[in-house]
């Protein structure tokens, strides 16, 4: 299948090489894919976006976007991509409509010409079209920024943490919009929220400038090598400490109202855990579980540490 983005041995450092932002990254994003970069602050997501959007130069390696070289063909790439940076970057003192008009004009087009692409989102903004962008709520700002990134009908859309700091309901709405756009455009999106990973076609789990794993969310989950069991008791804070004291435990962390306990297959059973914990814990409960992306991410982090 045709690649929308091709990345080969991309390396980027700061502070004269002391800080490695991207550590020889390699991957491809296919045309029409909704591709997720999943990782916390400092993983290297923004550095990668800035190189791909031709704003920064890599120390070494190369990359293409829409078949064009990010160094040689930077001008043409800028015409063909949409970029929504992590920081809100529209003009706060222009109205909703003025911002959108401005970006359309920059790309030598008009709102009318590409209205069908942004219509779905813009109708939600239309009641506020004369309001200044700076006076919009967080969720509305995101929607406007997305419209402005789309108004010139880009081939590839770069969204850098579009949902950070946005409440769970607005996050869900934003992802519903992305799913609808996906049929018409290649989208690469970064997020620190692990639950959003499952909404992507393929994801790269990033940490400390490296890609720990890259695959479909389902295959990443299928590759989880250990056994996982959920536990809770009335003394949760002490339960974490007590379980970590046990031998052959690879990880024990809170997940909502349970702890997820990770160990090699067969190292523990529910019965043996009960025996080990029942003297110090009341209302001890177990629940069999299958791992989620967050479990996978944490297991990978610990094996890379």
């Amino acid at each position: 299948m045709e690649s929308a983005i091709h990345i080969h041995n991309l390396h980027k450092t700061f502070n004269k090489g002391k800080l490695v932002a991207l550590d020889n990254i390699n991957f491809d994003v296919r045309k029409g894919e909704l591709f997720g970069l999943i990782g916390p602050d400092g993983a290297g997501k923004t550095s990668l976006f800035r190189i791909l959007t031709t704003l920064w130069l890599a120390d070494s390696g190369n990359a293409t976007v829409a078949g064009l070289d990010v160094v040689k063909d930077f001008k043409e790439i800028r015409r063909r991509i949409g970029y929504m940076p992590g920081k809100f970057s529209l003009y706060q003192d222009l109205s909703v409509e003025e911002n959108l008009n401005f970006f359309a004009t920059l790309f030598n087009t008009s709102i009318e010409e590409n209205y069908d692409l942004v219509k779905d989102i813009y109708v939600q903004l239309e009641p506020f079209k004369s309001r200044k962008a700076g006076k919009l709520s967080g969720g509305m700002k995101q929607k406007l920024a997305l419209c402005c990134a789309l108004i010139h009908k880009p081939e590839v859309l770069f969204l850098d943490e579009p949902t950070t700091g946005v409440d769970p309901v607005s996050r869900k709405e934003f992802w519903e919009m992305l799913k609808r756009l996906q049929s018409r455009i290649t989208i690469i999106v970064s997020t620190p929220y692990m639950d959003e990973a499952t909404l992507c076609d393929r994801i790269a789990l990033m940490q400390g400038g490296k890609i720990m794993q890259l695959d479909t969310p389902q295959q990443i989950v299928d590759r989880f090598a250990d056994e996982l069991i959920a536990v809770r008791s009335e003394q949760m804070y002490h339960l974490i400490r007590d379980i970590r004291e046990l031998p052959d435990i690879k990880g024990c962390y809170g997940f909502g109202d349970y702890l997820h306990v990770r160990f090699a297959h067969g190292a523990w059973t529910q019965e043996r855990l009960t025996v080990a914990l029942k003297d110090r814990h009341t209302l001890l409960e177990f629940c069999p579980i299958t791992p989620g992306i967050e479990d996978c991410f944490m297991a990978l982090m610990e094996s890379h540490a």
Binding site: P40, D41, A43, P192, Q207, I240, F297
Partner: peptide, 21 residues
């Protein structure tokens, strides 16, 4: 006030252990 935004999943959980403590 949103003390764990953007933090990796392990650090986020270790932070909550400090809160418990």
């Amino acid at each position: 006030d949103e003390p764990t935004g953007g933090v990796d999943p392990i650090t986020r959980r270790k932070f909550w252990e400090l809160i418990y403590e």
